[in-house]
């Protein structure tokens, strides 16, 4: 087991707001890592930095030992760093199949149309979207949207997958299905870093948890360890007066 993804001393400031302050964390090969924290802790900023949508002011990001700090998002995807968004953003005027084809054909340069189409079938099957493959993505239900979001990231054939609150807004039963799906994806050899608000999901899914508060890592460990950490309780429940 080695580090597949690593943030080393990463900082990001938006005008007056220090969104992240010297954050250092890593993801092990084959691991499912949860990043949690109260609202505004910097979780989404972290994910945007890792996937390349924004650039850090300081620090480096390493992927499979390579410094990717200055690579644009598409180049990171080509290397095998996939991402699903929190607010589902399907291409509404394309069908489900076509949405996945975008990831399959462009996620790995040199993918032939035939290979891409075959892989899309595989992803449709894995994510249970076959019956909706010809539906326009704009016509999906929320649950289907979430599946599509995951499926599309998976279609790029990532080695590491970044998931941004993919369970948000799901009912417990639906979240259970989604958890099973994420576990299944891990079984195919994908390492996963996810952001989550729903604590039962974190407990059942995460091998390890990193807690952010005000842009800093305040705790790290198994779910039980961080759940008992007084600093984490304080961050979530408020400081005593």
């Amino acid at each position: 087991m080695g580090k597949v993804l690593e943030a080393a001393g990463v900082s990001k400031r938006f005008l007056g707001l220090q969104a992240l302050k010297e954050v250092t964390l890593h993801l092990e090969e084959g691991e499912i890592l949860a990043v949690i924290g109260p609202n505004g802790a910097g979780k989404s900023t972290l994910l945007n930095l890792l996937s390349g949508l924004i650039k850090p002011d300081q620090g480096r990001i390493l992927f499979l030992g390579q410094d990717i700090t200055h690579l644009p998002p598409e180049a990171r995807t080509h290397l095998g760093l996939g991402r699903a968004f929190q607010i589902v953003q399907p291409f509404p005027e394309l069908t489900v199949r076509e949405n996945l084809l975008v990831g399959a054909l462009f996620g790995k340069p040199g993918t032939s149309r035939k290979e891409g189409e075959a892989w899309v079938e595989e992803v449709l099957r894995l994510t249970g979207l076959q019956s909706r493959s010809e539906a326009l993505a704009g016509d999906l239900t929320l649950l289907e949207d979430k599946r599509l979001e995951l499926a599309r990231a998976l279609a790029t054939r990532p080695k590491v997958l970044l998931l941004d609150e993919v369970m948000a807004g799901l009912r417990p039963k639906e979240a259970e299905e989604a958890v099973a799906l994420v576990k299944q994806i891990r079984e195919t050899g994908v390492s996963i870093l996810f952001i989550e608000h729903v604590m039962p999901v974190v407990r059942t899914l995460a091998d390890r948890v990193v807690v952010l508060d005000y842009g800093e890592v305040i705790a790290e460990g198994t779910y039980q360890e961080v759940a008992q950490d007084p600093r984490v309780r304080e961050a979530y429940l408020g400081r005593r007066a």
Binding site: P73, E74, H78, Q89, V102, G103, F106
Partner: peptide, 24 residues
């Protein structure tokens, strides 16, 4: 051709298209 998908993805969301590997 697949160029249509790249164009449609770019039009509908550049950020998502890039994260999916499209050279926008």
């Amino acid at each position: 051709s697949p160029f249509r998908l790249a164009q449609a993805a770019t039009r509908q969301s550049e950020a998502v298209a890039r994260v999916l590997g499209v050279r926008v």
